[in-house]
Design a protein around this nucleic acid. Structure first.
Lengths: 134, 134
DNA sequence: CCTGTTATTGATAATGATTGTCAAAACCAT
DNA sequence: ATGGTTTTGACAATCATTATCAATAACAGG
């Protein structure tokens, strides 16, 4: 049976309070900084469970790290992620859904799933960086 | 100055002969199986260079491994990948390009890049699997 | 072809994220 | 409170990748 522990709660809360995506390591550090004595392995397990039950989103950073994010939207959606500050916007992408299905069908593929994530610089970071680069 | 070595050539050839995406480790194994004494570190370096010069595509597998694929198309494109047999089709996706740019712009993002890959079952595998599942 | 310079190689150590291990502790039903 | 079972957490193990660095080989010039 699945038991309820404060560690599990702590991870869920910490994830809820996080704006964008965060790695397991970073979340663990954050929890420690807040005074929680939670173990690293436990954070990994909790995040894995959360992702498995659909309560959290997970994706791979370009460096190969697994990143997690609290996910209230139960439906399918995609992400717009600032590559500088990590700000993440959830986006619905009906257009892309349709396109993906059509492309798959055109090539005889079935059961199409897709990975669609857009990386860029958010308005804020764009301003900051162009100010220096200009 | 950039020098020409048989190792570099071997990696390029092995990648060319590979149908879908392959990991650095797997490519190294494959080369060894073919009798090449090439070192693992060299395979990593060669693949990194190939990806850097645009001669190879790279993406992250769900397990966090980096996968590479020979890429003749110099332009930007995406992939339709069979999750059963690994067959990969390169697809142009003007529609998605436009969509990604628009979504990014709508949220004030600039310098939008995107990861768009479609996974599914190719016609062949669909037939094989539905025959058993039906 | 021979020689020197220097990029490249490759064995191995190092790194860094993640998972496995397993005894001790915590949780929940009784 | 007690017992049975899950969960925890410190640490070892694993796995992909990168750094190290002496030895090697590629290329230019003679």
């Amino acid at each position: 049976m699945k038991r309820n522990t404060w560690q599990r709660e702590a991870v869920r809360e910490a994830l809820d309070e996080t704006e964008g995506f965060i790695s397991a390591q970073a979340l663990h550090s954050s929890l420690h900084a807040s005074g929680s004595p939670i173990g690293l392995a436990t954070v990994y397990r909790a995040l894995g469970d959360l992702a498995a039950t659909g309560e959290a989103d997970s994706l791979q950073s370009p460096e190969g790290e697994a990143l997690y994010r609290a996910c209230t939207t139960t439906g399918h959606h995609h992400h717009l992620i600032c590559r500088n500050c990590g700000l993440t916007v959830e986006i619905a992408a009906d257009e892309v859904e349709v396109w993906a299905k059509r492309v798959a069908a055109d090539h005889g593929f079935t059961g199409a799933a897709h990975v669609v994530d857009v990386f860029g610089l958010c308005a804020n970071c764009t301003r900051l960086l162009t100010a220096n680069a200009g």
